[in-house]
Amino acid sequence: MAFHEVRFPAKLSFGSVGGPERRTEVVTLTNGFEERNTPWAQSRRRYDAGVSLRSLDDIAELIAFFEARRGQLHGFRWKDWSDYKSCLPSALPGFADQRIGTGDGVRREFRLAKTYASGGAEYLREITKPVEGSVLVGITGDAQILGVDFELDVTTGVVSFAEAPDAGEAITAGFEFDVPVRFDTDVIQTSVASFQAGEVPDVPVVEIRL
């Protein structure tokens, strides 16, 4: 298998349903209390693109994309319209959006990440598929210049500085990002309702680990 650095057509993913999935094991004791545990440190996202298809042309584009990925065999990029920025959906990314590390005077590489915080608890999500041209980076409030101060690997989300940031300096970033996914089926079943419109009832997509 391989990962294809190509995005599922954004116009076809717009209107899809889906989001993060967790796996929690719950054991109810004889006294009514519960013990809860999870084997997953990271959440996993699932989507269904079927609801967003509106025409026979959409179906043709979907089938071409599906065939080129060989069904479930190869991964690809997916734009999650509800969560694709380092900032709020209504805002524009800025270099101070997310803290991705702290300098120690030696380390030069930092991976992009997004922190989800609520009620004093936090979840750190690594970002491995940033959108090229969208990434902004800062060091302790100072914007850095791509190609001069740092380089970015858009296939891994790793930021590499020309010089290691000094100890204690805050490394921050703002960006747009895609989710690495694959089709969660090897079958695409279409139903043509009329000459101008069709229906794809189920096009499941699931996040993959890289």
Score class of each variant (00 low, 15 high):
103 G>V: 03
134 S>W: 03
103 G>I: 00
103 G>T: 01
132 E>S: 08
116 Y>L: 12
123 Y>F: 11
115 T>R: 15
106 V>C: 00
96 A>E: 13
109 E>Q: 07
102 T>W: 11
117 A>H: 15
108 R>G: 00
104 D>W: 07
98 Q>N: 04
107 R>P: 01
112 L>E: 04
119 G>M: 07
109 E>D: 03
134 S>C: 02
113 A>C: 12
129 K>A: 05
112 L>W: 09
128 T>W: 10
105 G>S: 00
123 Y>Q: 09
106 V>Y: 04
108 R>H: 03
104 D>A: 00
97 D>E: 08
121 A>P: 03
125 R>L: 08
129 K>I: 08
96 A>H: 14
127 I>Y: 11
107 R>T: 12
126 E>Y: 13
121 A>T: 15
106 V>P: 00
112 L>N: 07
107 R>D: 08
96 A>F: 13
125 R>Y: 10
104 D>R: 02
115 T>K: 14
121 A>Q: 13
105 G>A: 01
106 V>E: 06
122 E>Q: 13
117 A>P: 12
133 G>W: 11
124 L>K: 11
101 G>P: 02
114 K>R: 14
97 D>P: 02
123 Y>C: 03
121 A>Y: 14
128 T>I: 12
127 I>E: 09
130 P>C: 08
130 P>Q: 11
125 R>N: 11
135 V>Q: 10
111 R>T: 11
128 T>A: 04
125 R>F: 10
116 Y>I: 14
124 L>C: 08
133 G>H: 02
135 V>W: 10
126 E>Q: 13
97 D>W: 05
